[in-house]
Design a protein around this nucleic acid. Structure first.
Lengths: 150, 150
DNA sequence: CTAGAAGCTAGAGAGCGCTCTAGGTCAAGC
DNA sequence: GCTTGACCTAGAGCGCTCTCTAGCTTCTAG
């Protein structure tokens, strides 16, 4: 049962998290890991499964737009141990709200862009000869199709 | 009816788009505007309502994560006039897909973070004395609450 | 014994998207 | 006449998040 389950090299962690080894060392310098990662006798980093899980959570935080600075704050709270749950909760809820807001915004924008896409699709389906789109009449600069597409 | 509807100063456009005047000049340098913006005799920029609408669209593109470079490409296509609708469509669809994917990802993550938030809320509701969370047993570094919260 | 792969540190560099500075013009109001 | 404020250009600087380099060690396989 002595799998190498406990004890991952930086390369393995990079592979599993999708972060580069550079990024992993960078994150450590930035205090993004609960502990500064244990080392082998030769100085090489040894990541535990817990470290891996933590990093995976960080990746999710990052990809949902949380800045490293905030992740660091959260890490710091966890590092301090129990007693600051309110602060952790506040931080998480703040992010939760930002993510929610962002999803709403993206959904709004998705409507807009989908509408534009439809318009272009219709236009192309009807054939390029369809010149509803480029009346050289308004010599000004009326990019009608664009503005119409909104 | 001679409102100043046609002819906005950079300051007015900044106010209405939420972009800074710096950003507006920057966008122009970067080729983000269909034309390089007309000028008054004294060299000051005069934005039309069309410019404003275009910029508002750019703001939406940006806030949905489209890089300036892609916006520039799109602008370039529009500037070239009709005949490249397929390319515009491809670009828009590419972005549409990225936005859709991002919404999915964010929704996924929202579940995770909401779960964490709930756990912390329950924990705090049950009172801090509840020590399910910090068993000093696993002296290693088992940040159980964190990992449990996932 | 040696080559190659993987790791290490410290620190420079890069890409993006602004943001700001320096130094100046121009028009309006006191 | 002078100040104030909005505008101008060219270009430097910044915050963030990595990414890469240089120079070195250490392990493994042939």
């Amino acid at each position: 049962m002595a799998e190498e389950t406990a004890g991952l090299s930086i390369g393995q962690v990079a592979e599993r998290t999708g972060l580069s080894v550079h990024a992993l060392r960078f994150y450590e310098r930035e205090g993004i890991l609960a502990d500064p990662v244990r080392r082998e006798s030769n100085g090489r980093r040894v990541y535990s499964e817990d470290d891996l899980e933590w990093l995976e959570m960080c990746v999710k935080f990052r990809s949902s737009g949380m800045p490293l600075d905030t992740i660091r704050q959260y890490t710091e709270l966890v590092r301090q141990g129990p007693g600051n749950e309110e602060q952790r909760l506040a931080l998480l809820r703040g992010h939760q709200e930002r993510v929610t807001a962002q999803i709403h915004e993206l959904n709004e924008f998705l409507k807009v862009i989908s509408h534009k896409v439809e318009i272009y699709q219709d236009h192309l389906a009807r054939g390029v000869a369809d010149c509803l789109w480029t009346p050289p009449s308004t010599a000004a600069h009326g990019t009608a199709p664009e503005l119409a597409a909104e």
